[in-house]
Computed example of a mutant assay.
Amino acid sequence: MPILNFIYSLVLFLPLLAPTPIAALPASGPDPPAQARPPSGSVDHLNAYCQMSLWQHSPGKGASWTGWPLSRSPDPKAGFNFDANLNNQCVNLFELNPSGLAGELSSFIVTGWCECEFFARLECREGLFSAYNRRDDTLWERHNVDNRVQSYRCWYTQREQDFDWGTVTWQGVQPDSFKMVNGRKQVVWEKGPRWQDVIDKKRIGKCRSLPGRDDEEWQAISSVVVNGCTCNFYSEEGCQGDGLGSFGNAGSVIVKDSFSPLFFEQGIRSYMCFYPVGIPDTPRTDYDVAGNPGMPPSVAL
């Protein structure tokens, strides 16, 4: 009898020892690619690469992130290291900096070849505003967007469709425009000839020479005003030699001799202009050759 009871209990227990059916495994294949994230680093917001800076409070205050929203490398050299995986990709702010940036953004800068839209919710939902070549340190004055941004997305654009024309205005000085102040040669402004170059779409990226640069009667340049475009300046003809700086944006930038002595005598000999990049802190102030504001692009120089 005890043996029968043992056999009977073993029969009841056997189903529990039977193997459990295994669900069908998914087909083998590569792991899904990791979602790309923009590299961070130190930027100057003055060149054409897409660049962004975000601050919890005012610039340099609180949690922050600075980098290249559309670049694959934190050190872009010649050209724009565009990463297609980052184009139009949603990025949550807490992934860039988990310490107080998301939902507390009050200042930002976006410059270069991109436009960015900011959202009030994660995964780029509930759009707030978009920005192109824009700096805003006072989001706290607009309560409908301050401390609300949770995510953003950027896309590549040069905004060529917004560009119509820009100008580069040169101010020369006469020989008697110099005077000595505390043993240093200074310039008496606005006494020399003024001339202007209109940069339309056909002249974008084309090297330009200063007229009569090698003439004996050539005098120094006291200032250059760049309106509505960005220009690189060079020490030799054909946009060769030493680069003397890049100036200009969608607004107005005045470069005076006091900024660099290279604007005198042995200075600029050629320049090349591009679509505007950077932040237009000052509105355009285009002047014609007579010094009158509001020069139309059709004026013959």
Rank of each mutant, 00 (worst) to 15 (best):
L4K: 07
F13P: 00
F13Y: 12
P15N: 06
P19R: 09
P21K: 05
A23L: 11
S28N: 00
P33I: 06
P38A: 12
P39C: 08
S40M: 02
H45C: 14
A48E: 15
Y49V: 11
L54V: 08
S58Y: 15
K61A: 12
G67Q: 01
G67H: 02
A78V: 10
G79N: 15
V91F: 08
V91T: 14
S99P: 00
G103Y: 07
G103C: 08
E104D: 10
T111W: 03
F118E: 05
E123I: 03
C124M: 02
E126I: 03
R134P: 00
D137N: 15
T138D: 14
L139N: 04
R142Q: 06
R142C: 00
N144F: 06
N147R: 14
V149N: 07
W155M: 05
Q158T: 11
R159V: 05
V173D: 07
V173Y: 03
Q174R: 15
S177F: 06
N182S: 13
N182I: 02
G183F: 02
V187P: 00
V187I: 15
W195L: 12
W195F: 15
Q196G: 03
K202T: 12
G205K: 13
W218H: 07
G228C: 07
C229M: 12
C239G: 02
A250D: 07
A250W: 02
I254H: 11
P261H: 08
L262F: 10
F263P: 00
F264K: 14
P276F: 10
G278F: 05
G278K: 06
R284N: 03
G291D: 11
P297C: 05
V299D: 00
